[in-house]
Design a protein around this nucleic acid. Structure first.
Lengths: 235, 235
DNA sequence: CAGTGGTCTAGACCACAAC
DNA sequence: TTGTGGTCTAGACCACTGG
C-alpha cells in the first residue's frame, strides 16, 4: 500500500508539492511542465484546484504561463521584494513597544518651487508643513517631514496636530488614494542630526510617499529612520 | 432597454466595481459590506466569482475578511510597496539601453569575521570575493560586491567571471533558493567613489541580498547605485 | 486550427468565530 | 449554535497563440 491518507487534496498541498519539484526536484529552469489536466489527474484533484495552485505559484514569480504554449519554469525567478508599510503607530505597537508622538514644527506657507513642481501646484499655493517624531519605547523611531496641499485639503488648517500625527488624521480623512512610494538614501540634514542620532551628512534611509486623490496632490511625506535602519524581506 | 450588453460578468469587472465603491463610493473605512451571496446576487454572478473578486481585493490590502464576521473595509489600507528585482541585464535591456559587464576584482580568501557571522560560515572558510560593474549605455548603472561560499559552491572557483557576471552564473547554477533582501543606505566607500561618481561618504542606496540553499549560505551580494537612485512603485 | 490556460457556474461541505 | 468565508468538484465555454 502507498500509505497515503485519503484526505482531500487542497490547493496548498499541491502548491507545496509543485514548488518543491521546482526548487529541489526535477523541474529546473526552463522546464515545460505538464498541463493542468495531466497534473490534476496525477494529484487526484480537479483542474480548478490545480489551476489555482499553478496560478498562485505563477504569482510568486516561479512559473510563466501562456495559453497554448503551456506552463514553464522561469529561467530567472522574478525576485520581488514586498514591503508592508503600516501606520507607524501600528508598526511600533506590533513590535511590542510603547508608541509616542511629538510635534516638532507646524507652519503654513507658500509652497517652495521644488515642492510646486513635485506636487504639481499652482503659484503661491498655500501648504501646511509639518515635522514630527514617532517614538518607540522612548527612542526616536521615525522622523516625519510632511507637506499638505492646503487648497485640496483646507480642513487640515484647522488641525494643530499636537497630539495625533498627520498620518493618522489623513488616513481618517482621505482614506484611499493614488500613491507613489520611493525608497532612497539621503544625507542627514539638521533635523535628522538633532532627532535621529545622526552626524551631519550621514546616509539616511528614507521612504517618500506622494499621495493623490482625483488627480490632485494631497500630501508629500518623507520618513527618515535612525542609523543602520534597513527594510528587510525574506522568502 | 437598459443598453447594457449581455456579456458575462467577470471577476475583473466585479473587482473594479467593488473597488470603486470603496475608494469613491459609499463604503468608507470600517464598513461591513454585504455577504458574498448577497453581492453575487446583486451582480448577477456566481458566489465563486464574487469570492475570487473579493479575495483579490483583499490581497491588495483594501478588505479584511473573516469567517462569520464578514468582510470589512480596512480602517487603514495596508500600504504595500512591491519591487521586482530582475537580473541587471534584463533591467538594463528592458529600459532600451545597451548592457555591458566589467569585472573589477576577483579573489579567493578566508572569510573575514563579519562575513562568517553574516553567512554562518566556519573558521577559515574559503570564499570567493567578486567586485564588478554593470553598465547601461556606457554609464555605470550598478556596482556589485559579492561573496560566494566556496565550500558550498566549489564550481565557482573554476569560473573567472571575466565575461559573464556572477549573478547570471549563479542563476543558472543555483536557481531557486531562500532569499533575504534588504534595502539600506550606506556611506560611499572607495569603490563607489571610483566607479559610481560619488564623493566619499555620500549616501548610497544599496540592495543587499543573502541567498541560502538547504540551510547553507551560498552568496551575499551588495548592489549599489549611482547618486540619486531611488526605487519607486505606484498604485 | 487546435491545444492550453482563463474563467464562469451551480452545488456542496467544511472551518472558523461570533453569539 | 449558526452565519460567513474558504475551498473542492465536475463540467462548460472562451481566448489566446503556436504551429
Amino acid at each position: 500500500m502507498t500509505g497515503a491518507a485519503l484526505e482531500k487534496t487542497t490547493f496548498r498541498e499541491v502548491m507545496a508539492a509543485i514548488t518543491q519539484r521546482i526548487t529541489e526536484g526535477p523541474w529546473g529552469p526552463g522546464t515545460l511542465i505538464p498541463t493542468e489536466t495531466e497534473l490534476a489527474e496525477e494529484f487526484g484533484c480537479s483542474r480548478t484546484t490545480m489551476n489555482r495552485a499553478l496560478r498562485e505559484i505563477s504569482g510568486l514569480g516561479l512559473l510563466d504561463r501562456k495559453r497554448k504554449a503551456g506552463t514553464r519554469v522561469r529561467m530567472a525567478p522574478i525576485r520581488q521584494a514586498r514591503f508592508e508599510l503600516p501606520l507607524v503607530r501600528n508598526e511600533v505597537e506590533a513590535a511590542g513597544a510603547e508608541y509616542r508622538y511629538q510635534l516638532i514644527n507646524r507652519a503654513v506657507l507658500a509652497a517652495p518651487d521644488w515642492l510646486r513642481a513635485r506636487m504639481d501646484l499652482g503659484p503661491d499655493s498655500p501648504v501646511l508643513h509639518i515635522q514630527c517624531l514617532h517614538f518607540a519605547d522612548g527612542k526616536a523611531f521615525q522622523l516625519e517631514d510632511r507637506w499638505i496641499n492646503a487648497l485640496a485639503l483646507p480642513q487640515a488648517l484647522a488641525e494643530d496636530f499636537a497630539t495625533i500625527g498627520p498620518n493618522e488624521w489623513l488616513i481618517a480623512t482621505v482614506p484611499y488614494s493614488e500613491v507613489e512610494i520611493s525608497f532612497l538614501a539621503v544625507a542627514a540634514d539638521d533635523l535628522a542630526v538633532r532627532h535621529l542620532d545622526h552626524a551631519i551628512g550621514d546616509p539616511v534611509f528614507c521612504v517618500e510617499r506622494a499621495t493623490w486623490w482625483k488627480n490632485a496632490a494631497i500630501t508629500l511625506v518623507s520618513l527618515s529612520h535612525p542609523r543602520g535602519h534597513r527594510m528587510t524581506t525574506r522568502y
